[in-house]
Amino acid sequence: MIKINNIFYQYEGSAAPALSDISMEIHEGEYVALTGSNGCGKTTLIRQLNALVRPDRGTVTIDGLDTADPANHKEIRRLVGMLFQNPDNQIVGMTVEEDIAFGPGNLNLPPQEIRRQVHDILESFGLQSLAGRAPHTLSGGEKRLVSLAGVLIMNPRYIAFDEPTAYLDATGRRRVLAMMKQLHKKGIGIIHITHDAADMADADRLLIMNRGKLIRDGHLRDILCAKQENTGFTLPLPPITELIRHLNRQGWSLTPDIFTVEEAGREIHRLLTRAR
């Protein structure tokens, strides 16, 4: 379990804290979406989970390991994988297979074991044909998958995705989101930074941040159904919800609180069956 206990963090030379009074828990296997306006502290928060930055006050523990203790960092970085916004800056190897092997190399695994693990992960991602390719020759979607493979080879318990669908076309986006759902099914905890309301619908929990503070923590449905308080951040509605509410305003009797395509499909089917 990831436990964040009343943390405060301020970048050097910055006037305002990047994170303040944040407390929460993320359980193993949980899918958490994290949203908020640009610069509200989302990326800083997930960097805390990987011990890339440590809180000035408060504690962050990953499965009981305190991020403040440098002796825990290697294990913490194995437990919490990070997928950065720009995969170009995450891929460090000269070839795809070398990049995937970077993490196990840091764990000092023997070369034969690294080769076996790289082979397995390339096979599971269907990336065998890219093994010897230089990273700059890959498409955006392929780069994203390679960086994800580089994280997964470490067998993490949690993965933090920082806007993983940025810079991707529709196909790449679908592929990455499907991969994330698959990982969630396998029991890996997912922390997903996103601005897209449609992506939030898949999450077990939605966290909303504003100006370094955690202002909402709950399920998307509950947050959207509840009376919106004036917190300085307006959560966008998923496009499917907007459509259903629009139809509702046009006189169609549809339940307004629909947030996924599946729910919308069921509701429209119900309406059409009744009309027939």
């Binding site: 960097r47 890339l52 194995r78 196990p104 080769r115 580089g150």
Partner: peptide, 22 residues
């Protein structure tokens, strides 16, 4: 800067490490 962070996030630290190449 980003690269340093990405390397750290993947467990890189100064000192001996193994590689894929045999």
């Amino acid at each position: 800067d980003d690269l340093t962070e990405a390397m750290e996030a993947r467990g890189y630290a100064r000192g001996p490490r193994t590689t894929l190449n045999q």
